[in-house]
Amino acid sequence: MAFNLTSDIHNGVVRITLSGELDASVAGQFKTAVEQAAVAQPKSLALLVSDLSYMSSAGLRALVFAKQKMGASIRIFVVGAQETVQETIEMTGFSHSVVMLESYDAAQIEA
């Protein structure tokens, strides 16, 4: 499935929905979306990834970029990650820096 990205801002949270396969050839789109999101100075960034079937380290680097761009205090939620994508996030230690949720928990994310 081709990579697709949509984003919106809701209650101070930038929500980026990623689907398909996120590799180095499309990571620039994700990075651009993060840059645009940073302008809104959101309190949280929620990545909705239940339809993301593949993510390489190019996607992880965009997360590093998000923290650097939005400031260390930004909370990043990864929502609905498939097992393989979740394992990559855990194996690389990124799970120390993001909150992994099975489903969108507005009370926690939009708090």
Binding site: S56, S57, R61, V64, Q68, I76, T92, V98
Partner: peptide
């Protein structure tokens, strides 16, 4: 050596090769 570091303290790079070895 920075896998346990917070994202903002991590250099970008080296992850791909790490994943290849894993």
């Amino acid at each position: 050596a920075h896998l346990d570091k917070q994202l903002e303290d991590r250099p970008i790079g080296g992850l791909g090769v790490y994943l290849a070895r894993q």
